[in-house]
């Protein structure tokens, strides 16, 4: 299972690299990285949002979707294979679903605003940005809950502690490496 996981991580990295190349080779637009504010020095403006996403929008959406999956896979890699039970995988799938949902709301909320000009606010920010700010922050909280509340079940169990103590007793070198 560990070999499959590292293979998946490798495949994700390759895909991310390929998407990056595709984006770099896409037709560039004048405001892709922003342009200087016409009146205020030191400020940058984005300009036409639809134009900026015209050639790369779907690549960027896929990039982030795969990156979120990579984050989940990396967290799974940090859990010993013997603790990766079906409920654990189910929980991680749920974490990914939540992160993907938040990303979806953010991206397509932005799209909707660009098309309609209609906008609502949430806690001081335009709703798509609220998804970005609050959603991205809180989207990883389930991972933190698993780590903290599930520490003795998934991360470092009593059996792990005993095994490490035994290892220290057996092998500890009196000098540094």
């Amino acid at each position: 299972m560990s070999n499959k996981l590292i293979s998946l991580i490798f495949a994700l990295c390759l895909l991310l690299g390929a998407l990056l190349v595709a984006i770099m080779m896409a037709e560039d637009v004048v405001n892709s990285g922003g342009v200087a504010h016409p009146d205020i020095a030191g400020m940058t403006v984005g300009g036409d949002g639809e134009l900026r996403l015209k050639h790369i929008g779907r690549y960027a959406f896929l990039f982030q979707s795969l990156l979120l999956l990579l984050i989940i896979c990396l967290c799974i890699l940090g859990v010993s294979p013997r603790y990766r039970t079906p409920p654990f995988y189910g929980y991680m799938a749920g974490c990914y679903s939540l992160m993907l949902f938040i990303w979806w709301q953010m991206y397509f909320g932005h799209q909707q605003f660009m098309q309609t000009g209609q906008l609502s606010y949430f806690m001081g920010f335009p709703t798509p940005t609220a998804w970005q700010m609050y959603g991205t922050w809180f989207g990883a909280i389930p991972l933190m809950l698993l780590y903290s509340l599930g520490f003795r079940k998934f991360i470092y169990t009593q059996a792990d502690d005993e095994a490490f103590t035994a290892l220290l007793t057996e092998h500890k070198s009196p000098t540094s490496p």
Binding site: I23, N31, S32, G33, G34, H37, M43, T44, V45, G46, G47, G49, R52, L53, I56, G57, A60, F63, M106, Y107, G109, H110, F113, F125, P126, P128, T129, W131, Q132
Partner: peptide, 16 residues
């Protein structure tokens, strides 16, 4: 003033 600046990807754009 500039909607992109306060939208999720800001002035620097989505890939930045």
């Amino acid at each position: 003033n500039d909607s992109e600046a306060i939208m999720p990807f800001g002035s620097a754009g989505i890939m930045a």
